[in-house]
């Protein structure tokens, strides 16, 4: 019963089409990626500076 209902639901024609991808906002993701990238580059640069200063 439940399976039939589920398959009906899956095969039912979609009335609402997916919004175009351009509309999805990735601003938050973008900012998070930039913050993470800056952290990685910053820590690498600090360790490399330490290495050079001790050479």
């Amino acid at each position: 019963m439940a399976r039939e209902a589920l398959s009906k639901q899956e095969t039912a024609p979609k009335t609402k089409p997916h919004p175009p991808e351009e509309e999805s906002s990735l601003r938050g993701t973008f900012v998070s990626v930039l913050i993470l990238g800056a952290l990685i580059v910053g820590s690498w640069a600090a360790a490399f500076w330490l290495y050079l200063s001790r050479g």
Partner: peptide
């Protein structure tokens, strides 16, 4: 393949960082 504008930017930044690390190495 469609890529979001922001995805293109962060992929480019990642690629540039990889090139920079390899050059330093």
């Amino acid at each position: 393949m469609h890529l979001h504008k922001y995805e293109k930017i962060w992929l480019s930044l990642g690629g540039l960082a990889l090139i920079a690390f390899l050059v330093v190495l």
